[in-house]
Amino acid sequence: MTEVSETLLKIVAALLAVLVAGLALLWHPEPPERPLPRAALPPGGDFTLQSAAGPVSLHDYRGKLVLIYFGYTYCPDICPTSLAATAEGLKLLAPEELARVAMLFVSVDPERDTPARLKEYAEFFHPVIVGATATPAEIDEVARRYGVFHAKQKVDTAGDGYVVDHTSDTYVVAPDGRLVARIAHATPPDQVAAAIRKHLNPT
């Protein structure tokens, strides 16, 4: 083989490598569980909210994987759809796995959702789910850190005249307290369980 063609071969190989790397970086078919690239990861972090059993903080669950869903009890369709799928995912876990998982249902509608109301609502889906909320200002602050969009939307016929548009992903917080992933709305139960296991037992 001549030196020229060898150089050419190397150039072609290098170009191919760049192409493959570029594809890997830029081509993202949307998986149901979206591991967030480090840079795009909202900071997340600790917070304290009010539950029917008193204050509840994210750091209370250190050592457990915590799922967080931001919603509200007046939520007519999206929250029940998401929560039912997540609850069925939880039911697929072995008891020893479930013992290492916590879940918070955080109300983005603190004006209507009391801790007592949230408790009944959340436990209807799964006994592991703890309903909690805080003052509107505190909820805004937590939502901002988790990259959760929520906005009241006037709908005359809805209870008290409004619904709340909100991000319908479920947030995954690793046992060390770091926000590590989001699970998309209505992800099937087996994929919810797989996402939980992945972050419960990082390799």
Binding site: T73, Y74, P76, D77, G159
Partner: peptide, 12 residues
């Protein structure tokens, strides 16, 4: 009709 969770005032 989806059974409304407790305290939910609406369902689909």
């Amino acid at each position: 009709v989806r059974l409304a969770p407790p305290n939910a005032p609406a369902t689909g």
